[in-house]
């Protein structure tokens, strides 16, 4: 059975990527299971998605502990323990990362993994008219590594993105082809791991859970101003940027911001606290002067 784990941030489309890959497998005649898993259902929060595919009915479910292939859409997740990118990594695992960096610059110890592959970010954007399309590029790269036929991948993309505007769909197909071709030379690198039932198992370290004082065994944390300490700006995948020249000082962005991170100067000039702005873009929608632009956190413009 193939086991693939995707890591991304909410809004980056890794659930979609897992579905594109799942459907490609399904079209190729495999039994398939794909599922996303997220804690807080919000943009920017780390999330994972799983794909299993095999020739027999699949009984496994949920978390994939030892993936054959890990796909990471956001490099910043590598240094975030909560994201669990390196969980269950073995010397049989291939790690595919969407990044502008070279493999060497990622500083992942070679001994811990079978191979690290960098998928250039430039494949997911298209010059000035850039649109992010990480999901199709990541799915396509994975499909190439798993030797799935390109025509089935493109058919799957059309099925999964059938509600997408035709121009954007075309860009996705072009990007996917480029990502597929880029990775195709590595097509025999990823291997299906097999469970050897006779090998025995490491017993789980079960313990007898003991009573603990209610003062610290109740699910309550009392803390002051923790919302200031946590840099929720790290959740952002899109950045609102105010063009002060066009701003008419109406203050609507300040009023509507659900996180209260847009302050007004004495003269009524708005300023965004990027440490805490989550990039929800409500300010952009509300601005009557259309003075708020959107940039991706990768540097492109939406």
């Amino acid at each position: 059975m193939w086991r693939i784990r995707f890591h991304g941030r909410g809004g980056q489309g890794m659930k979609t990527a897992s579905r594109i890959l799942g459907t490609t497998f399904f079209l190729a005649g495999y039994e398939v299971q794909d599922s996303p898993r997220y804690g807080a259902e919000r943009r920017g929060a780390p999330m994972t998605a799983y794909v299993r595919a095999g020739r027999e009915p699949i009984f496994e479910r949920g978390i994939i502990t030892h993936p054959d292939l890990i796909v990471v859409a956001d490099r910043s997740l590598l240094s975030l323990p909560l994201a669990g990118v390196f969980q269950g990594l073995t010397k049989d695992t291939v790690l595919l990362i969407l990044t502008e960096d070279t493999e060497q610059n990622l500083h992942i110890p070679a001994a811990t993994v079978k191979a690290v592959l960098a998928l250039p970010l430039s494949l997911t954007t298209d010059g000035a008219m850039s649109r992010t399309r990480e999901s199709s590029a990541c799915a396509a790269a994975a499909a190439a590594l798993l030797s799935l036929p390109l025509p089935l991948l493109l058919q799957s993309l059309q099925e999964e993105l059938h509600k997408t505007a035709s121009e954007l769909l075309q860009q996705n197909l072009t990007g996917a082809k480029a990502a597929y071709e880029r990775m195709f030379k590595h097509q025999n690198l990823v291997r299906q791991s097999s469970v050897n039932p006779e090998a025995g198992y490491e017993p789980p370290h079960w313990i007898d859970l003991q009573f603990e004082d209610a003062h610290h065994s109740a699910p309550a944390i009392h803390g002051e101003a923790t919302s200031l300490l946590v840099k929720t700006g790290a959740w952002r995948s899109m950045r609102p940027v105010i063009d002060i020249a066009r701003c008419n000082r109406c203050g609507l962005c300040h009023t509507f911001c659900p996180d209260g991170v847009i302050s007004l100067s004495n003269e009524g000039v708005p300023e965004i606290d990027y440490d805490h702005c989550k990039g929800c873009m409500i300010c952009k929608v509300q601005c009557p002067m259309h003075a708020i632009d959107v940039q991706t956190e990768h540097g492109g413009t939406e």
């Binding site: 398939v32 299971q33 599922s35 699949i58």
Partner: peptide
């Protein structure tokens, strides 16, 4: 929830 609700299977 999740293990069936959000999980695709044939």
């Amino acid at each position: 929830g999740y293990y069936l609700s959000f999980t695709r299977e044939p």
